[in-house]
């Protein structure tokens, strides 16, 4: 499967080998009504092996969620068979409704219609904390 074969869609490339399925589930790609290809253990000049996900169709992809699971990944956006943008993903400073606070004592467990917001508190530890109760994500 080549990038060229996608008319309108996304390629998530340079995913750390082994993390492709995590990302697939995290982004809930199994729920999409469009072709999704998962390539695992593809050759990578940089890291030896990598995973790649190709999505053949227009859909809103949560870039923050990709940054949370694998900040080293890249996203290529394809429109009308052409690459229109290639984005290097970084760990987002703020995650909104990507992960959910599991602390039963947190106000997010009772307050109506509240968004679950986490802040990157320690980049070296890849640590996110709930902005309300400080629980780790």
């Amino acid at each position: 499967m080549n990038i060229d074969s996608i008319q309108n869609g996304f390629v998530i490339d340079h995913i750390q080998a082994g993390k492709g399925m995590d990302l697939y589930h995290f982004l809930e790609l199994d729920k999409l009504d469009m072709p999704v290809a998962m390539i695992m253990g593809a050759f990578s000049r940089k890291t030896g092996k990598k995973d790649i996900i190709k999505i053949d169709g227009e859909v809103d992809i949560n870039i923050d969620a990709i940054g949370y699971v694998d900040p080293g990944a890249t996203v290529t956006i394809i429109k009308n068979g052409q690459i229109v943008e290639k984005r290097k993903i970084e760990e987002p400073e703020i995650l909104t409704d990507v992960i959910y606070c599991k602390n039963p004592r947190c106000i997010t467990s009772t307050e109506q219609e509240i968004r679950h917001v986490f802040r990157l508190t320690d980049k070296s530890r890849h640590e996110y904390r709930c902005i309300y109760c400080d629980a780790r994500g």
Partner: peptide, 10 residues
Amino acid sequence: RHPKEGAPVI
């Protein structure tokens, strides 16, 4: 004062 953590942030 609130029993839930983070309520004052809201």
